Amino acid sequence: MDTHVPEERPSISGHLPSYRLGDRLRVNCSSGPAMPAPHLTWFINGEEVGPHLIRAYQLSVSEYLKSSVLQLVSEVRHNFFRDGIMKLKCTSAIGEKYWQSTETLIGQLGDPRRGTPSQLAGRAGQRYADQQMEVRHNFFRDGIMKLKCTSAIGEKYWQSTETLIGQLGDPRRGTPSQLAGRAGQRYADQQMEVTLQFTA
């Protein structure tokens, strides 16, 4: 059977920035058009959500393509939060040919120890920062770190994207504007061809 994978990650919609315990949570995960329709899965703080909290739908986009929608409906419970933050994750898969995921962070309201909504948002960002890898000296060459990410599905699809990041804190490296200029010059000197490959 022919396979057409979605062109984008699954999307999460319908949620508020923060909830109180006992509030009604109703949030959707939607896939892009595909053939066959992708299989969607919800996770809360890394734990898969049971079938009693979800409702699955399929929407016909064309004669052959369908989008999947997986709705998560539940009363907000205490165990949905860790340190005042709920991490929702949705994955979309078509067998072994396609897999993508999307995450969002939601704050907890109603507990004075948790702080204001803006503080919750800042804490969510800090948790991402705390989980990042420590920047090391060997990450840089001539004051520039080059990050590259590739995406592939067997021999049917391949694409890559890269970005350049400057090193601060070393006076030999120059000012931030000089670093940015140097990064831009390296892009001009070493432009990378992004390749998109499909096979029948």
Rank of each mutant, 00 (worst) to 15 (best):
residue 1 M to I: 01
residue 7 E to S: 14
residue 10 P to I: 07
residue 10 P to Y: 01
residue 11 S to Y: 00
residue 13 S to A: 10
residue 16 L to W: 00
residue 16 L to H: 04
residue 19 Y to K: 03
residue 20 R to P: 09
residue 22 G to H: 02
residue 30 S to E: 14
residue 35 M to W: 00
residue 38 P to Y: 00
residue 38 P to L: 03
residue 39 H to S: 14
residue 41 T to D: 10
residue 43 F to M: 14
residue 44 I to F: 00
residue 49 V to Q: 08
residue 53 L to Y: 03
residue 53 L to A: 06
residue 62 S to N: 11
residue 62 S to W: 02
residue 64 Y to I: 02
residue 68 S to P: 10
residue 72 L to P: 08
residue 74 S to R: 11
residue 76 V to Q: 01
residue 83 D to N: 13
residue 84 G to K: 03
residue 92 S to D: 06
residue 92 S to K: 02
residue 95 G to S: 08
residue 95 G to W: 06
residue 99 W to C: 06
residue 101 S to H: 07
residue 101 S to T: 06
residue 102 T to K: 10
residue 102 T to D: 06
residue 104 T to L: 09
residue 105 L to G: 05
residue 108 Q to S: 03
residue 109 L to H: 00
residue 109 L to Q: 08
residue 109 L to W: 00
residue 110 G to K: 05
residue 111 D to G: 03
residue 112 P to H: 04
residue 115 G to N: 05
residue 115 G to M: 08
residue 116 T to L: 10
residue 118 S to K: 13
residue 120 L to R: 11
residue 122 G to S: 12
residue 123 R to D: 07
residue 125 G to T: 09
residue 126 Q to P: 01
residue 128 Y to L: 15
residue 128 Y to Q: 15
residue 132 Q to S: 14
residue 132 Q to Y: 00
residue 133 M to H: 04
residue 138 N to P: 08
residue 138 N to I: 12
residue 142 D to C: 04
residue 147 L to K: 07
residue 149 C to G: 07
residue 152 A to I: 14
residue 154 G to D: 04
residue 155 E to Y: 06
residue 156 K to R: 13
residue 166 G to C: 03
residue 167 Q to H: 03
residue 170 D to V: 15
residue 171 P to K: 02
residue 171 P to Q: 02
residue 174 G to L: 07
residue 175 T to A: 10
residue 181 G to A: 12
residue 181 G to V: 06
residue 182 R to N: 11
residue 187 Y to V: 10
residue 188 A to E: 15
residue 188 A to M: 13
residue 191 Q to D: 12
residue 191 Q to C: 08
residue 192 M to Q: 12
residue 192 M to A: 10
residue 194 V to K: 08
residue 197 Q to I: 15
residue 198 F to Q: 13
residue 199 T to R: 11
